[in-house]
């Protein structure tokens, strides 16, 4: 037997791998959104724009200052995180007591402004970012070739997601975060600086978007619209996983990437919509999402 339902194995495995790569991006981005929604109660529409900013900062670093991929991977998330902290202190902190809608509109506006600035400067055509030398080439797995860079993206994404999950579920800082998410006022009454945690959570969440941007730069072309192309699917992932659920965002992100990849093999016409079909089904059966708690 040389395939499944008439699809040859190499094609199947290739799409599965692509699905895992896309799923890795969905997972990192929706994880950041989940952390932010949990702590700030804000649906961060600027997430895609900050992911794009991450990719551009990596590109600019290499182009203007000769900062390579390795350094970009460390520095860009910190820089984007700082941008996030400034946004939180300057704008978002005034919206926490208001309806979700205000945060959504404000971050949507910010996304348009950030994208507009990059479009103004760089246009909409993609800018190339070379795969760093040590990560070029491919592993021969016998049944398929696995490009090293794709394996790297999956590995980094899984480690970052796992690390974040461990910090949130198993450490003292994580206990503070969970407590502040569940009952911020009481948590403050115990002497925990909740506003500081909120600021850091936003910085961390968008820092993850920045990291995803750097990882994406060599895979997709760097262009100002790369965030808005991706973010709609990521929001669907967040809804399917359950708003604010950490584990849900990770599992759903990777799972949907794979489902999307496989649908490209079996029924390519559906690959662009399969995520939204899943979303509709999940919302009918479990309105709070797969991992969400009913309110």
């Amino acid at each position: 037997m040389s395939g499944l339902f008439g699809v040859p194995w190499p094609a199947l495995m290739g799409q599965l791998m692509l699905g895992l790569v896309n799923g890795s991006f969905y997972a990192i981005l929706s994880l950041g959104l989940a952390v932010i929604f949990g702590m700030l109660n804000i649906i961060n529409f600027a997430h895609g724009a900050l992911y794009m900013m991450g990719a551009f900062l990596a590109w600019m670093g290499l182009r203007y200052w000769g900062i390579g991929y390795g350094w970009a991977l460390l520095l860009v998330p910190v820089l984007v995180g700082i941008v996030g902290i400034v946004i939180e202190r300057a704008f978002l902190q005034w919206l926490y007591r208001l309806d979700h809608l205000y945060g959504l509109l404000l971050t949507f506006g910010l996304a348009l402004i950030i994208e507009g600035l990059f479009r103004h400067q760089y246009g909409v055509s993609g800018l190339p970012y070379e795969i760093p030398a040590p990560l070029t080439g491919a592993f021969n797995l016998g049944f398929m070739f696995l490009p090293r860079y794709r394996a790297w993206v999956i590995a980094v994404s899984l480690s970052v997601c796992l690390g974040t999950w461990i910090v949130i579920e198993k450490t003292r800082l994580g206990a503070y975060l969970r407590a502040a998410t569940e009952n911020p006022r009481l948590t403050a009454a115990f002497g925990i600086n909740v506003p500081l945690l909120v600021t850091l959570a936003y910085g961390f969440g968008v820092g993850l978007a920045g990291l995803a941007g750097v990882l994406a730069a060599p895979v997709f072309q760097v262009n100002p619209l790369m965030g808005s192309n991706l973010i709609i699917v990521v929001f669907a992932v967040v809804v399917i996983g359950g708003m604010g659920s950490i584990l849900g965002s990770i599992v759903t992100g990777i799972g949907l990437g794979v489902i999307e990849g496989l649908s490209k093999v079996f029924y390519p016409e559906a690959s662009a919509t399969v995520v939204f079909v899943v979303m509709a089904l999940v919302l009918m059966l479990r309105p709070a999402g797969l991992f969400g708690r009913e309110q």
Binding site: R185, A188, V194
Partner: peptide, 8 residues
């Protein structure tokens, strides 16, 4: 004072 400072 904010609550967390009072608790402290």
């Amino acid at each position: 004072l904010p609550p967390h400072r009072i608790a402290r």
